[in-house]
Design a protein around this nucleic acid. Structure first.
Lengths: 252, 252
DNA sequence: GAGTGGTCTAGACCACGGT
DNA sequence: CCGTGGTCTAGACCACTCT
């Protein structure tokens, strides 16, 4: 009978921990400050290190913390708003939008990209690698798939490998008349090569932005951009410089 | 000397496991099929259960698996493409876009939403709850914040709580002339109430879509929509029904 | 080399869904 | 009730960064 069980559904420890830590971050820590190490924090809260780590992982996912092996855990700055699709209906690289060409090479796209491109499996496709730097740190890595048929003025292979070749491909691409584009965003985990480029461990959560570029002739290129999910807030339209502290939600 | 260490950087076990499982899913399993339970899988691969779980977690994050307590682990269908911002510059709820009004009530928005709304901390704000159902499952929960000042024809409080009241607020909102809107997408983790609505555990990864609705007078409303990151692919433009299997990327 | 976070183990118990 | 995934523990060792 009256066992007065106020919390019949006990909150998981790591969840409660996360809440406590979150409040501590708001009140007692400045951006960039380093937290005590995991072993000490675990001891301080009287939990196993694995449990503490579960809480830290969530806070990192939410962009509140930044952890680096061999260094420590620091309080992350608010997410940077990176504009995606701001200049609508324009080829990538037409303006200085923070993207840096890295290289270009032949590639064998996966089935998914092939489907979007609408090309036959054997057809020659170029892949342009670019990285996006925002406020001093690289926030995204991109692979831009361009069927060779889209860039007939193809002196690309003659150009020596490196940024110059990437730029050459993009220059050719920008000759075409862009009819439109569409985009999708989903959650993914960083592949080993992207992770390296983004200074994260493989498997780190990323936002996958897939863009299709249309001409009258069909799909001229497909871009798959990998954004760091912990540090980025993707913005559409002109809300790039809006101040958002960290989480716009509250209990109703 | 010649210790012939081909793999000087040994891949983590869970990473390798993930790759193996991923290939097995492609080849030997159909959508909806249930996998062997975690204890058996761990034994089969000769790893601890925690290690196996790390691999499963990643696959779930990527939308390849679906795990439910008390039930089991099943192969997830491809992510549903949910249109976001398709009908540009229109109030929410003006067309049948899959959103279902649930309720409306007074609310005390957090600092972040207040900043976006541009209202004073004490001002009265209404919060409209809506859920979005796509292909039979609810994929998103939304809180639409409307300053009382935006809807002067405020008979909302008189209407009995429930969907009717939510609809009443939205009807008032749609009277205004919409000047524009902007949007941002970021990664978050589900709050307890949203998690319940989305049939997930608290802390599940979600995509947070924040939309600001402008009139000439300023920001008339702010919406914070919480999408299931495991099952959703957010689409912008008209790429809603494009076939994407699961991951558009390949090694270059 | 010292100190950090990342990986891994082998257990235990709990909460939930179906029977 | 049983079987499932979810939480938690107390250790161990590894990979990395900085000094």
């Amino acid at each position: 009978m009256g066992t007065t069980q106020l919390e019949s559904v006990p909150e998981p420890k790591y969840w409660h921990l996360k809440t406590v830590l979150s409040e501590a971050l708001d009140q007692d820590f400045a951006v960039g400050e380093v937290l005590p190490n995991e072993r000490e924090l675990a001891a301080r809260f009287g939990v196993a290190r694995a449990t503490l780590r579960q809480a830290l992982e969530q806070l990192e996912l939410e962009g509140r913390l930044q952890r680096r092996r061999g260094v420590g855990t620091t309080v992350a700055p608010p997410r940077v708003g990176v504009d995606v699709g701001g200049a609508r209906h324009s080829w990538p690289g037409e303006s200085t939008d923070g993207w840096e060409p890295v290289d270009a090479a032949e590639a064998v796209p996966g089935a998914a990209v092939l489907g979007l491109l609408g090309t036959a499996p054997g057809e020659l496709v170029l892949a342009v690698r670019r990285t996006r730097v925002e406020q001093g740190q690289s926030v995204a890595a991109e692979l831009l798939y361009v069927p060779a048929a889209s860039v007939p003025g193809l002196s690309a292979i003659d150009v020596p490998a490196g940024p110059a070749r990437a730029r050459a491909v993009m220059r050719e691409l920008q000759r075409l008349v862009l009819d439109g584009q569409d985009r999708s965003v989903e959650l993914g985990s960083a592949r080993a090569d992207d992770a390296k480029e983004l200074d994260r461990l493989p498997g780190a959560p990323v936002l996958l932005v897939t863009t299709r570029y249309f001409t009258a002739a069909g799909t001229a290129a497909v871009s798959v951009a990998t954004y760091r999910a912990d540090t980025c807030r993707l913005t559409f339209g002109d809300s790039g410089d809006v101040q958002i502290t960290h989480d716009a939600r509250v209990a109703s």
